[in-house]
Design a protein around this nucleic acid. Structure first.
Length: 649
RNA sequence: GCCGGCGUAGCUCAAUGGUAGAGCACCUGUUUUGUAAACAGGCGGUUGCGGGUUCGAUUCCCAUCGCCGGCUCCA
């Protein structure tokens, strides 16, 4: 959470809309204090889409309270209070805060203001709040606002702190704009992949199978399979080799890679052999002991890793004697250790590099239950993963190759609304593995590669993986949440931890550099975002049912079945509507099912081996020979044309 | 995991402290249809699951599972 006081930008005047929203949050706070005088205020900034205020009070707010608070806000707006700025000394500020009984959070916020910076309050009516500003002059300017929701939010964004009640609202300069925004929110709901996924039967999540575990229906599987075929073709062109590896691996593998210690809380619990458990039971082993013995590293492994990394990566406290270690298996949280083992199963010459191992690899992560969401945040997902093993000199070119691949994917699908993030390490954190010289090299390589992208990017400290920096492609879903899709990560560290080598031209052993990359990221998340991107109107090559024959009456049913046969023989995913309905009803059904093309067939078309083509995008396109229609569709598919994407997008 | 809300038929939603209802979908029949909904009938629910209060609970209470919005997290 950024305090309004921490950012130097906040000293600049706000935009008119920000002023309105910021003022609304003050009016919100004043309304809350009128209704609940004991409320303790934290902060209330404007946001991209509105404003909020974080408030601490004993009573849990409910939706009905929002109406009361909003009514009180409207009263305050009508009172036409003026917003007045008042600059004070630090001591006076503390005094004002204390007099108003708001010391619980506001004194801390006051302490955040750097020495030498102005300390100001804004006063409207009986309300007064520590605030850098700026605000509208009169509360009557606030005539289009609405409270939207209540949520919990930790004080200062830290889950160790108390959770406050956050009231979200939105505000605009005019009622029309507000209404338009609310309408947009409604429309966004209609594009939500969870709704479309249900309507078009693309995927299913079943309570009994488990939360966050996607069951791909036949329809959804077609889309996924087409995407995989597409990317597989690109991989072949770019010199990748496809591999398959199992869904589990031994715990020790992940102790070596570092995944287990770094992310043990976000992994499915280890699988320990039944016989082992029986024996431990016989020994009277407690859960706590078992847990320690599962997590501990053997002295041999610790020594090996520490030797490779040249530092005390694994401390003595993390080890237990070999005979006490309980090994087991883990559902793989990443594919890299398996690919590393494949790479390392053979000696490599510098002439072999780069080695590019690709796999649609399914991984499992124990995401917190409250974080799960449709297909975009799940507990089991398949990455279109690959690991490149290359020489130091090849790194730059290989990263660029990966970025090109990501761009190809996004361009093919018409996805242009993304941002690029270069994730760097957070200098204050200790979660990273490896030495800082390698990190510097890797970070610079990412920056340089991002430069070549021709797309604006931001550098964000703290967004790196624990083993290396990365370049992420980030998109927003319909409700404005950001998701990382494609990613390219440079890794100097896992080759060290696994002691990977290749023989160089000098006949000496050298350390390869690894690049992790996934253009889609995860098939699940990507498909979720893709469903929303197309609003369910998939281009022909992706549509589960590409074309549907609509016989006008039962009299032409035989001819319709014949056309269907021809379409299927041509490799098209075709269906037929045999309902005893009028044409209008069949067309409507086709539209609701978002079929790219429907082929109307009546007596006159049947006579001349033709159909009347209706496209989802353009409607009636006239009568064409069946053979010509097939050629047209095949062409549209092979070029992965976006032509039938609905024009409203 | 935390805060708040929600859970009724395949889907969208009604209703009530007294044995649950509509539209769509599905099935059957009639209709044989020309570019976004023909008509009629039928099938369909232990109201998420488990307790409690009550003569009686789908409704009230508790617990649990799941979903939604947000927070935290995200290799």
């Amino acid at each position: 959470m950024k305090s309004a006081f921490q950012s130097p930008k906040s000293l600049m005047p706000m935009s008119p809309l920000e002023e309105i929203r910021h003022s609304c949050s003050h009016v919100l706070a004043s309304a809350v204090l009128r209704l609940f005088p004991d409320a303790k205020l934290d902060i209330g900034p404007p946001t991209d889409t509105g404003f909020y205020y974080d408030i601490d009070m004993d009573k849990a707010l409910v939706t009905d309270d929002l109406e009361r608070i909003e009514a009180e806000m409207k009263k305050i707006a009508k009172e036409n209070q003026s917003f007045r700025r008042k600059e004070v000394s630090r001591e006076e500020a503390a005094q004002i805060i204390t007099e108003r009984g708001q010391e619980r959070y506001k004194l801390g916020r006051l302490a955040d203001i750097p020495e030498g910076e102005a300390i100001s309050f804004y006063e409207n009516g009986e309300f007064m709040d520590l605030c850098a500003g700026t605000h509208v002059r009169y509360s009557a300017k606030l005539k289009a606002f609405k409270l939207l929701s209540i949520a919990g939010a930790y004080h200062r964004g830290d889950e160790k702190n108390k959770q406050l009640q956050r009231i979200y609202g939105t505000a605009f300069a005019s009622k029309d704009e507000l209404a338009e925004y609310l309408e947009q929110l409604e429309q966004a709901k209609a594009r939500d992949h969870r709704k479309i996924g249900k309507d078009l039967k693309l995927f299913h999540i079943d309570e009994e199978v488990g939360q966050g575990l996607i069951l791909w229906t036949p329809n959804g599987s077609i889309i996924r399979q087409e995407l995989q075929n597409f990317i597989s073709g690109e991989l072949t062109k770019q010199g990748y080799q496809q591999v398959f590896t199992p869904h589990i691996g031994k715990l020790e593998l992940y102790k070596t890679s570092g995944h287990f210690p770094y992310y043990k809380d976000s992994q499915f619990p280890p699988v320990v052999e039944r016989e082992f458990l029986e024996r431990l039971k016989g020994e009277g082993c407690t859960c706590a002991e078992l847990s320690n013995r599962v997590e501990a590293v053997s002295p041999n492994l610790a020594a090996a890793i520490n030797k490779r990394t040249g530092t005390e990566t694994i401390t003595e406290a993390d080890t237990l004697p070999q005979e006490q270690i309980v090994d087991g298996f883990m559902l793989k949280p990443m594919n890299c250790p398996h690919h590393i083992k494949l790479f390392d199963s053979q000696p490599h010459s510098y002439r072999d590099l780069p080695v590019r191992l690709a796999e649609f690899g399914t991984v499992y992560r124990w995401e917190q239950s409250g974080e799960l969401s449709g297909m975009t945040r799940v507990r089991g997902f398949t990455q279109d993963d690959a690991h490149l093993f290359c020489t130091e000199e090849q790194v730059a070119e290989e990263i660029i190759g990966c970025l090109t691949l990501v761009k190809t994917v996004l361009t093919t699908l018409g996805m242009s609304d993304y941002r690029v993030r270069v994730g760097l390490r957070n200098p204050d954190s200790t979660k990273y593995t490896g030495d800082s010289a390698n990190w510097d090299k890797a970070e610079q390589a990412c920056r340089d590669a991002a430069q070549t992208l021709d797309v604006p990017f931001t550098e964000e400290p703290g967004e790196a993986a624990f083993y290396g920096p990365k370049i992420d492609f980030v998109v927003k879903d319909v409700i404005g949440r950001e998701w990382q899709l494609g990613t390219v990560q440079v890794d100097y560290n896992l080759p060290v931890r696994f002691d990977l080598t290749y023989i160089g031209a000098d006949n000496e052993k050298h350390r390869p550099v690894m690049i992790h990359r996934a253009p889609f990221g995860s098939m699940e998340r990507f498909c979720g975002v893709l469903i929303e991107h197309f609003g369910g109107d998939f281009p022909l090559w992706l549509a589960p049912e590409q074309v549907r024959v609509l016989p006008i009456s039962d009299k032409v049913m035989d001819s319709a079945e014949e056309v269907l046969k021809q379409l299927k023989a041509a490799g098209l995913r075709a269906g037929i509507d045999t309902h005893s309905d009028k044409l209008g009803a069949k067309i409507r059904r086709g539209e609701l099912d978002k079929i790219p093309y429907t082929l109307v067939l009546g007596a006159k078309e049947a006579e001349i081996a033709s159909v009347s083509v209706r496209s989802r995008a353009k409607g009636d396109e006239g009568v064409l020979k069946v053979a010509d229609v097939i050629t047209r569709f095949q062409n549209e598919i092979s070029t992965r044309s976006l032509a039938v994407k609905s024009e409203s997008k």
